[in-house]
Simulated assay, not measured.
Amino acid sequence: MSMIPTGGIKEIIRVLPPKDSYYPFRLQALQKALDNDPNSPVIPFLMKVVHAQESAFQALKSEKATFNFQEKEPFFVMDEAMLQCFQQTAITFCEALKARIETKNSSDYSEILKAVNALSTAIIDKEKTKQYFENIITLDLEAIPAHQRLFLLASMQVTLHFAATNLKVDEQYLLEAHDLCPCCKMPAISSVLDNSDGGLRYLYCSFCETKWHVVRSTCTECTSNKSLFQTTMEALDSPMSAEVCGECNTYLKFLDRTKTLIADPFIEDLLTLTITIKLTDKDFHTFGLNPYFV
C-alpha cells in the first residue's frame, strides 16, 4: 500500500541525509543567540568550536574523503576507513580550534588550550584514537576524559556529517527501526518540523545530521500515543518545545522551524535548558544527545 500523506506531498521520503555542511547555518544561529545575550560566556567559545568544525568539514571535502556504505541499516560501515577519517578530522579540528583560540585573548582559554594540545598529541596514536572511536560509537562517553569529550564528539560529528553528504538512499526505502539514526545508529537530538517536508515530523541525528521520518503524535521511544503531550516555557520565546510521554516517562525536544529561518536543533537545545531542568526535576528522562553539551 502506498503511503499518501495529506499536506500536498505525494509520498513520504523516510531518510533525508544532509546535502552539504550545516555549520554555516549553525554559526548564524549562534550569532543570533549572541545578539540576544551579548554577555554570554559560552556562545563565543561555541562559535570557535563550530568554526573549527567547518574547517575540518571543508578539509574532508577538498581531500575527497571516501567511506564504505551498505544497503541496509546502519548504512555507515564503521571500519578502518571511517576510523582513519575520524583521526584526520580530529587532527584538523584541533589545529583549527587552536588557531582561533590563539588569535586573541588566549589567556581566557588557557585551560582549554592545554586540553586541545593534549588531544592533538593523543590523537596521533592509532590505538588511542581507535579507543576514542569505539567509546563514541558505543556511547560509552564516561570512558572519555571529560576535558576532551567535547572536542572528540565535535570531530566525530564532522566525520559522520560529511559521510552522510556522500550517501544516497533510495526514496522508497522502508525503515527497519525508528529509535536510532538509520545511517550511524546514533540517537536523535530532537524532532524537527520543516516547511520543505510538508508537515511531516522527522527525527534529527545528533551526529550525522540525517533526518528520518517518524509519524507525529507517537512517542519516539515506546511508540505509544496514549499520554503524549507537549511542554514549553513561554518566557523563552523559542521554537523549541518538548514532546513528553507519560507512558515511559521520556521526552524528546521538538523544533518547529516552519515559522523561523534560523533555528538549529543543537543551539535551540542549549537555549532551552530551562525545559530540560523542569522535566528532569519531574523525573522525566531523554535519550536525546547533544554533542555540544555532554
Rank of each mutant, 00 (worst) to 15 (best):
H178V: 12
I124R: 14
I136Y: 02
M1S: 10
K61D: 02
K211W: 01
Y132K: 13
V158H: 08
S196G: 06
M82A: 15
A146G: 01
L175Q: 06
C85N: 08
V15E: 01
E71V: 05
L139A: 15
M1R: 10
L174I: 08
D170Q: 12
E234Y: 11
P18N: 14
N195W: 02
E102F: 14
S107H: 10
E54L: 14
F93K: 01
F86S: 00
P187T: 11
C208L: 06
L255N: 00
S241M: 06
E95I: 11
V158L: 10
Q31K: 05
L200A: 15
F162K: 06
I9R: 12
F207R: 01
E73Q: 15
L150D: 00
D237K: 13
M3T: 05
D35G: 08
Y251T: 02
F133E: 01
K19M: 13
C85L: 07
R149S: 05
K278W: 01
T210K: 02
C245I: 12
D283F: 07
F229S: 08
I12E: 09
E63L: 13
D35Q: 06
A65W: 03
Q87A: 13
T6C: 10
K185E: 05
Q131G: 04
K72I: 12
I4M: 02
L113N: 09
L174D: 04
T66E: 05
F266K: 05
H147Q: 09
L203R: 00
H161M: 12
K282I: 08
D140S: 14
A90W: 02
E11R: 11
M78F: 10
A115S: 12
V49E: 04
R149I: 04
K168V: 07
T274M: 09
D269G: 05
Q84F: 13
S196A: 14
M47S: 13
C245F: 10
K98N: 15
T276Y: 11
V294D: 07
P74R: 11
K185S: 07
G246F: 03
E11M: 13
S107Y: 11
T276I: 04
C208G: 02
